[in-house]
Design a protein around this nucleic acid. Structure first.
Length: 284
DNA sequence: AAACATTCCTGCACGC
DNA sequence: TGCGTGCAGGAATGTT
């Protein structure tokens, strides 16, 4: 569940369920993620209280007592689930249907008997403890563009970044240095709403087209957050619930199916090695 | 069984 | 020639 709306949904859920709880202990079952989880991770995490939940781009940030932050990225296939403790039974009684022991890589036991589990079949994700004050300068977050839901992301900004660029607009939107948090699904949906083909060269777009893209971006993302993100296949949020935005997708994954607006079959072309869905009638 | 929601790295082409 | 930048391509990996 990796793009911005999914991470933001996760942040909101965890903010309600986990803020104020203390991580009694952490257990790393499989350290080989995108980068190896450091060997002192367990000791460094133990005893920390979760003060707040934040997000930057597709990164979830657990603000810990003392100012350090736990940076979490879900990669392609990661999930973070908060599982209640079993009343009356051992906290780790494993009859939970949602349990996936083969890919549960890190477990955090909390002081109310619940636990937060990081699961990631493809192990492209990341868990990293960042010292207080070093968050903005850490390699993962340094160099990220503005948040698409913030004031800094505007038509003027996008026009500035698109000027003279030959890259396809879809690749520009997915470039985390330009704007943070947009991936393949939402780039496709944003461009459909903006009526611009994903293959268009960024520098060739009119001011009106740039304006529509800049307007569609927060609009699509907010709508997806409201639906708790998009669920593909077996993906679930931190309470095990599927996201509700899948049924709202206008083009993503709909190759050959009729456009909801004009009935023209949706097409799929490869742009920058990624599937790119669009309506050839509605998007120019 | 080909496709895949992620990031990161390499190497080529081009311009100054 | 040398350097920086833009861009394409591929790798990492397991599931469906």
């Amino acid at each position: 569940m990796p793009e911005l709306p999914e991470v933001e949904s996760l942040r909101r859920i965890l903010a309600r369920s986990a803020t104020g709880l203390t991580i009694v202990s952490a257990k790393v079952l499989e350290p080989r993620l995108r980068r190896k989880v450091s060997h002192d991770f367990e000791a460094a995490i133990a005893g920390r209280r979760i003060e707040a939940l934040a997000r930057r781009a597709k990164y979830l940030i657990l603000q810990l007592a003392g100012g350090d932050a736990l940076l979490v990225h879900l990669g392609m296939s990661g999930s973070l689930t908060h599982r209640p403790g079993k009343a009356g039974g051992p906290a780790f009684a494993d009859h939970d249907e949602s349990l996936d022991p083969a890919h549960d890589h890190v477990e955090f036991r909390l002081d109310d008997g619940s636990r937060i589990v990081y699961n990631d079949p493809r192990r492209f994700g990341l868990l990293k403890l960042v010292p207080a004050g070093a968050l903005d300068s850490t390699v993962e977050l340094r160099g990220l563009g503005p948040e698409p839901l913030g004031k800094a992301f505007s038509a003027e900004y996008l026009a500035l970044k698109a000027r003279g660029r030959r890259v396809a607009i879809k690749n520009l939107l997915m470039d985390q240095r330009i704007v943070a948090g947009i991936g393949n699904i939402y780039a496709a949906e944003i461009l459909f709403r903006a009526a611009v083909r994903p293959t268009r060269r960024s520098g060739r777009l009119s001011r009106a087209e740039i304006g529509r893209i800049a307007a569609a971006t927060p609009s699509i993302l907010r709508e997806a957050i409201g639906k708790r993100g998009t669920t593909f296949r077996s993906y679930r949020d931190s309470r095990g619930q599927p996201g509700g935005f899948s049924s709202r997708l206008r083009v993503y994954g709909r190759e050959g199916e009729p456009c909801y607006t004009c009935s023209t079959p949706i097409r799929n072309v490869i742009v920058g090695q990624r599937a790119s869905f669009f309506c050839p009638q509605c998007q120019k």
